[in-house]
Amino acid sequence: MRARSHARGGGLALYLVPGALAFLAVIVLPFAMNVWYSFTDWQGVGSPHWTGLANYRRLWSDDQFWESFRHSLAMVLAMAVIPTALGLVVAAALFDFVARNFGSRIASLLRACFYLPQVLPITVAGIVWSWVLAPEGGALNALLKAVGLGSLRQDWLGDPKVALYSVMAVMVWVQLGFPVVIFMSGLQRIDPALHEAAELDGASWWQRFWHLTLPQLRPEIYVVMLWCTIAALKVFGAVYVLTKGGPADATDVPSYFSFATFFEKTQVGYGSAIATVMAVIILALALVGLRFQTRAEDAQ
């Protein structure tokens, strides 16, 4: 009797009950409430007033919203595309150049340096960088002056023309370690004999990188791009600490836009609409991405 129920996998479903209840209370229900708020006009006190699609219509014609989404695309560039490309080169260089010629200890020490920013709380990274980039007494401007490039000094985070690029540069710094670590572990499953054979045939380091390393790391590249893109669409803490979306909304992103709408303007209905659109975009991207991933895995 017991053996039979076990064979059907029954009996253990009960263990899902605490988890299911907790998820219902902490994720499903709040998400549903958020969607509901997005159809209302509500200041957070009293009862929400149903307005149908009004918030979404307002969103559609809100320049600040579209602007914040353009900045999201800049974040995708800074947190997914650039770190993946740089990470591939760094990982391959550490793995089959530094480790082979100078020993694996030096390679793992260097890897740790690249990974370090990933373990810092984002607010700490933000404090460090907002001081480094400060116009007066900041380290970067002092450094530029010291090497005779004083004319390049900027108000890195305060000038609307450069602020977005400064934030992007900080995000590359924050994110780079993740692809480096993933790609280095991926390289370990590649048969070294392939590289040796190619080297004997006279292939240069770049040729081997392009024709051997890249194709073999395809699953890792895919995963890294997907996760980093999702992280880029969600970026909040860095913007909060570095610029608060300013100057003049030059670095505003959807997450900060919704936060400010919720808690500074207390327009809960409109904030919920922004958050709902964000969630839909991210979930759609994740669904498509995971779908392709499982299909690729099945094909292999």
């Binding site: 902490v26 409430m33 999702i230 922004i274 994740a286």
Partner: peptide, 10 residues
């Protein structure tokens, strides 16, 4: 994966 922004107010 859900962004926390869509849970934070509730």
């Amino acid at each position: 994966i859900l962004p926390q922004e869509s849970l934070v107010y509730p």
